[in-house]
Amino acid sequence: MNYYDFHIHSAFSEGESTIEQIAKRAKVLGFKGICFAEYFKNENQIDQLKQEIKKISQNEKINIYLGFEARSITELKKLKDIRKKYDVLLVRGGIPELNRKAVETKQVDILTHPELDQRDSGLNHILAKLAHKNNVAIEINFRQILQSYKGTRSHILEKMKTNIRLCKKYKAPIIICSGAISHLQLKDPFILISMLTLLGLEIKEAKKAISETPENIIKIIKKRQNKKWIMPGVEVE
């Protein structure tokens, strides 16, 4: 089975480790592919990142994808306009309006930690239905659990359980990522699967969240990079 981690920050955004350090550690832990979720600054940055990623991907023999994480609605609009230039579009959850906008947008691949800094879980039955309709994967972020303690951790776990329950009921795709900002925070795929089973998924569903959901995103990436693709639902014959 191939495992993927689709939410890692390198030193280009808020991360502490270089792309090379992260790629090396991911290879050791047994990942087939990883995706860097960087913050968007300008279009020149994309080419620079792509070149570096290509070089490291060939050296380390691991598939590396380039993603951008939108932190506001204006940033999401900008990233939507240049959607063909990069692989994965993630939206940083936590603001109710942004959560809604993310699951309504077909170009978005992943809604990251929708429960971030909120009193509720960040999702409800309507957003879960929309996520299923637009094929937006809801992320379970391991860093949220790793970096919290005691009461905070128990609240985060409770919210994640609610989100998983909603996603299961409305068949919205679930994805688990390490959300690492350093190569030290990358986790073994077995550990990520085990955490999902504690949060209420069956083993099969947990494996799907780390393997099949990212593979579906990769399929869409390949389709999108084809010259015939114009926008979701529109292709040239």
């Binding site: 391991f142 659990i145 790793l146 030290l184 925070q185 986790k187 073994d188 077995f190 550990i191 990520l192 699967i193 085990s194 955490m195 089973t197 504690l198 083993i203």
Partner: peptide, 13 residues
Amino acid sequence: SVNTVVACLGLID
């Protein structure tokens, strides 16, 4: 308890 124990190991940094 295999999954529980493995998940705990993941929390050690």
